[in-house]
């Protein structure tokens, strides 16, 4: 099983998904992130899915789970770079991301996290 690397940039954890996710990798990522947020005290998590070709219900649920976990540590989550075909499919599938923030690209995602932090 491949593990998704987590990078720390300032107070933000960046997860860039570059592999075809199998369910075990999804579960491992959730655990790794929870661990990382608690040890680093990060205030934000950005999940970059611009390279992800499909998001099914299992992967979709991961976003909501990660967002809930980070909220427990007072961190915000932004999912960035969702491809149009993936978005259309998710809508058809009937999946909502449960209020997870989204942004068009990494840059916008980082800005949103900054803004949220300033407003808080």
């Amino acid at each position: 099983m491949e593990r998704v690397p987590i990078l720390k940039i300032g107070g933000v954890l960046l997860v860039s998904i570059q592999i075809d996710l199998q369910d075990q990798s999804v579960l491992a990522l959730q655990e790794d992130l929870a661990e990382k947020i608690s040890t680093t005290g990060a205030h934000g998590v950005v999940i970059d899915i611009s390279a992800v070709e499909i998001v099914d219900s299992f992967i979709g649920r991961m976003f909501a789970t990660i967002a809930s976990i980070s909220r427990l540590f007072d961190a915000d989550t932004v999912v960035v770079g969702m491809r149009p075909a993936v978005a259309i499919t998710l809508v058809e599938l009937g999946l909502t991301l449960g209020g997870v923030r989204t942004a068009l690209n990494l840059e916008r995602g980082m800005k949103i996290l900054e803004q949220v932090r300033r407003d808080a």
Partner: peptide, 12 residues
């Protein structure tokens, strides 16, 4: 409607 929801998922 679906387009609007999809755009939102993409951050627009």
């Amino acid at each position: 409607l679906k387009t609007v929801v999809a755009a939102r998922l993409m951050g627009a």
